[in-house]
Design a protein around this nucleic acid. Structure first.
Lengths: 219, 219
DNA sequence: CTGGATCCGAAACGATACTG
DNA sequence: CAGTATCGTTTCGGATCCAG
């Protein structure tokens, strides 16, 4: 049963939190920023949310016009996606993410979804504007993403692309480690925790878009 | 006793919500955006939070480095204020406020603090850049604020100012009504729900910085 | 008065098991 | 796959009480 409590405050901030202030709500929005996702994909991305709470949140967000159910790519099934109003949360969620990286690390074991790493990548990347345009195909935890590096901007899209300079298969945590310390690329490739196909230097350019700050960070 | 649960997610968004995601936390931050406030002022601004939860949140936010206790203006007492890190939440809270005004209105009775109206005013005002610079003194629910209108910007400061074109005393809800419908200014003045001293047209200019959109809104 | 602390019932959450 | 059902635990909300 969805939550019904309210802050009873006319202020816009309070009204926003009446809608997306309940536990897990903004993390669900984060997951849907890059692409629609199905119930089981959300469970996989947010392994610590229990299924009843996830169902409650999705119902609540749908009733409040933040998300809606639509047809999934694979026919016959449905996926949750942001409404136009829900999409307006994007700068807020990204802002929270940038603010939160300065918080103390959470205790292990700690989850990390593909969306989390990719959103961090988009926001933290500072590609050299003079570097050659690069397209990477990422196979991250069972889904395929396209990362485009051009004009001093890094952009992530869900799905395949026709032409990629290189392809990288990894899980989100490993990619996060690589972004923190690109020098581990060779070892990771050697021990099989990642797989690279194509132009290795393209992957290397991708990893080096994150400015180094000496002390490691996690998305 | 402060909350101890965590999302156990390394993502920046989740780490941010581990710190400011508990109930009432971001509304406390909202209250502290314009000026430090004391425990009793926060209780007055957030009448629906119970004192134990407020105390818990303040402790938690202090432990996490979002706020700290400092000497209040009136000596002998202390006030809560944002740390440098906490202040970085400002664009996020303002963004939430702008997003939230499109949400359905909460049920009455609904609170509205001075900070809420003033932050809404700052974010929603679109002053005519060619209008004459104007300084208004606002007496809003027991505290005095200075509103400066110049160069197409509206800025709010806590406290008195030496030279003001006009002075307005009102409570937050009344000011909100006036901002929604400036035509009620005369009636409000007549029935004593507000008091104006000085240049009435300055107040009128202030109220007209909010773009009309036909259907009423509340901060 | 200010700045909380204590107590208690109600609601939300977390974990696990189960079903169409 | 996409959720329900159940149940123990935590947090919240509301009222009251207390020390400085």
């Amino acid at each position: 049963m969805p939550t019904s409590r309210s802050y009873r405050d006319s202020c816009g901030v309070a009204r926003a939190l009446d809608v997306v202030g309940e536990r897990w709500a903004l993390l669900i929005v984060r997951e849907l920023l890059l692409t629609p996702q199905r119930f089981s994909e959300l469970r996989h991305a947010l392994p610590h949310v229990s299924s009843n709470v996830l169902a409650d949140r999705l119902r609540e967000l749908e009733n409040n016009g933040v998300i809606h159910r639509g047809p999934a790519e694979t026919e016959g099934s449905t996926a949750y996606q942001l409404t136009e109003w829900g999409r307006n949360l994007e700068p807020i969620v990204r802002g929270l993410g940038e603010w939160g990286v300065d918080a103390p690390q959470p205790p292990e074991p700690s989850a990390l979804s593909a969306s989390s790493v990719l959103i961090f990548l988009e926001d933290a990347a500072r590609p050299d504007p003079k570097a050659p345009p690069t397209v990477c195909r990422l196979d991250l935890g069972g889904r395929v993403w396209t990362v485009r590096l051009a004009d001093g901007r890094l952009r992530v899209q869900a799905g395949e692309t026709a032409t990629a300079d290189a392809s990288l298969r990894a899980d989100p945590k490993t990619l996060s480690t690589l972004l923190n310390d690109p020098s581990t690329l060779e070892t990771a490739r050697a021990n099989g925790s990642i797989a690279v196909v194509g132009d290795l230097s393209a992957i290397r350019r991708l990893l080096h878009t994150i400015p180094r700050n000496d002390h490691p960070t996690t998305p």
